[in-house]
């Protein structure tokens, strides 16, 4: 039963895009069309499952000090694999995803699952976790992609769905529309879940912060800024 839970938690409860707010770059960039969303989601799911299994198998071999670079190399290896597969068999998807396909390497969902789940659990659980998270990511992308494609170009998966006399709202396929739709979707999820939205944004609210090199830098930066402010206060007082 517990294995089933590892799979389902990624779908809705801990949906990587809409609830834990990870992997923003591809979510915003490639969701101008529903078909791109499926392609991106499938590629990311493949990489997630494979890298989760491999990292879970190697968890005792990888020394703690160099674990992040090791994870990145493993992930980059699988990303290269899916790049070559797509290029050979689905060149249309490969062209549509463009630069965002190799950038799956630095997608924080994958590194986050490696650090938080795969490195602590057995391979079977890690594979299910990866599949769940990947499918959750795909669903969120599909949702974004459908909204943007239907409103922005009047089509869905390339099929005309809006009547011809309706002028499509180009705004939705512009970058600005991406930010807007994602913001509204997250607000909608907050509303439905009746969840107190986290006050903090950015790294402070990020569930990955323990394993993420960025979070360490962010904390250090925040500390430095507050130190400076304290120093300035002191100077004022001395005067």
């Amino acid at each position: 039963m517990s294995y089933m839970k590892e799979f389902t938690k990624g779908l809705i409860k801990e949906n990587p895009t809409l609830v834990t707010l990870l992997g923003m770059c591809p979510t915003l960039a490639i969701t101008t069309m529903a078909s791109n969303a499926i392609g991106m989601g499938a590629a990311a799911t493949f990489v997630l499952i494979c890298s989760n299994v491999v990292i879970s198998l190697l968890k005792k071999v990888i020394p703690k000090a160099v674990r992040l670079p090791s994870y990145i190399v493993i992930i980059a290896g699988f990303v290269t694999l899916i790049q070559l597969i797509l290029q050979a068999f689905l060149p249309a998807i490969y062209d549509a995803l463009g630069i965002y396909l190799p950038l799956i390497t630095v997608n924080c969902i994958i590194l986050g699952r490696a650090e938080m789940f795969a490195s602590k659990n057995n391979p079977a659980a890690a594979a299910l976790d990866g599949a769940g998270m990947g499918i959750g990511f795909t669903l969120a992308l599909l949702c974004m992609g459908s909204i943007r494609e239907i409103f922005g170009s009047g089509t869905w998966f390339g099929i005309q769905v809006c009547p011809n006399f309706m002028e499509p709202m180009t705004l939705f396929i512009l970058p600005a529309g991406g930010f807007f739709v994602l913001g509204c979707l997250i607000a909608l999820v907050n509303k439905i879940a009746n969840r107190q939205p986290p006050k903090a944004t950015g790294c402070a609210a990020c569930p990955n912060r323990e394993g993420c090199p960025s979070a360490a830098g962010e904390t250090a930066a925040a500390e430095k800024i507050s130190e400076k402010a304290a120093e300035a206060d002191k100077k004022e007082e001395n005067k």
Binding site: L21, F179, F180, L182, G183, C184, I186, A187, N190, P197, P198, K199, A200, T201, A205
Partner: peptide, 8 residues
């Protein structure tokens, strides 16, 4: 509040 308004 938080992320959604930042994105908008």
């Amino acid at each position: 509040e938080g992320m959604p308004i930042t994105l908008v």
